[in-house]
Amino acid sequence: MNESPGSIRDYIRPKKLQPTVFWRIAEDIPRPLNTALVITSIGAPLLLWWLVTTFGNIDPKFLPSPAKVMEAFGRLWSTRELLKDTVASLWRVGVGFILAAAFSIPIGVLMGSFASIRALLEPLFGLMRYMPAPAFIPLLILYLGIGEEPKITLIFIGVFFFNSLMVMDTVKFVSKDLIEATYILGGDRKQALLQVIFPHVLPGIIDACRINLAAAWQLVIVSELIAATEGLGRRISVAGRFLRTDEIFVGLIVIGVIGLSFDLFFQYLLRVSCKWTTQKR
């Protein structure tokens, strides 16, 4: 039967899965290889930077060497300017983000749980989400002046709508069976909300917050480019004006490292608080 003309076997081109370590899909790689790749990821660009600035003939005003940047870092650190800038930026992000999280998490859970609240808020939030937060800056300056309030409000606007909608989406993954099981066990709606839905979506909430904190961190820098007396964004724009490229690099690196630490912190939080959800692929 297989030999009959026009058999499907004539069309099939056999393939073989070649053994590999590097290209295995959805599987772990050996630890040493992992470590080597992680080091390469950071080390290679650094090395390239060092090579280009050492052996290439490049104006330090255009691209300062790693050593120069370290020097600038030491200078800014010793005058305590860097610390002051960092604290100012962190404070703005902290207040704006915590306020936004405090409102958006409960609202998102309510929107996800109740079709009524979803119908009431989702159209508005969906619209607001597509208005870029920095576009509000002129209005915020008009309404709130140039102090801390407009900066914190900017972060609030930039985080609140996104976070509400992302938290709302996580509630979709709570199975209806689990809620109904709760009613049958004698629970009421409030208990289902607080003792079943909330713990179930907690990992999703932490993840949404992790992603939106990155947005908040970007917005604080943007807000400081406009009007501020201190802050990391302010540091970069001033350094730019005086062509102090090494200080721009210091600012950028500090911003990156702090952002990465936030991210790692949230990943850690997720791992320790929600052990039940870590599944092997």
Partner: peptide, 14 residues
Amino acid sequence: DRGMVFQHYTLYPW
């Protein structure tokens, strides 16, 4: 007053 065991597993995973 009515206990139920579902067709699908419905233990709370956490």
